[in-house]
């Protein structure tokens, strides 16, 4: 399975990204990701114009043998089911140029 996380915003405002194959990860990390993918309803989150300032935005992409899932969230719309996946991938984020 290929997984990608792009994180932008936050107080810092910089873009960070990681793209990984789950073969590269530890067993407990793979399990957390697989559970996230299975438990998530992959419909795009409704726009949520909140009063939050300096929160993060997340673009998530998962490719397995059968299909590809993509969705965009904010700190306030990120579903509980996806937090483990985001928690794993945040450890591997690297800076990415915006241009």
């Amino acid at each position: 399975m290929k997984v990608q996380l792009q994180q932008s915003g936050g107080f810092m405002g910089a873009l960070k990204e990681c793209s990984l194959d789950t073969d590269q990860l530890e067993a407990d990390e793979v399990q957390a990701i697989q559970e996230s993918v299975t438990n998530t309803n992959w419909t795009e989150a409704e726009p949520n114009p909140s009063a939050m300032r300096d929160g993060y935005q997340y673009h998530v992409r998962v490719e397995d043998q059968e299909q590809t899932y993509t969705a965009a969230y904010t700190d306030q719309t990120l579903p509980e089911s996806l937090k483990p996946l985001v928690g794993v991938l945040k450890k591997y984020l690297k800076p990415k140029s915006l241009r």
């Binding site: 915003g9 910089a14 873009l15 300096d54 800076p95 915006l98």
Partner: peptide
């Protein structure tokens, strides 16, 4: 910076960021 990259902020309208990240560049 190995952990932060390079500060993406422009200082001129010619370099205005128009992409989708960071709510269309609010901190940029």
């Amino acid at each position: 910076d190995p952990d932060l990259g390079t500060d993406p902020q422009p200082g001129h309208m010619n370099d205005l960021y128009t992409g989708p990240y960071d709510n269309n560049g609010v901190h940029i």
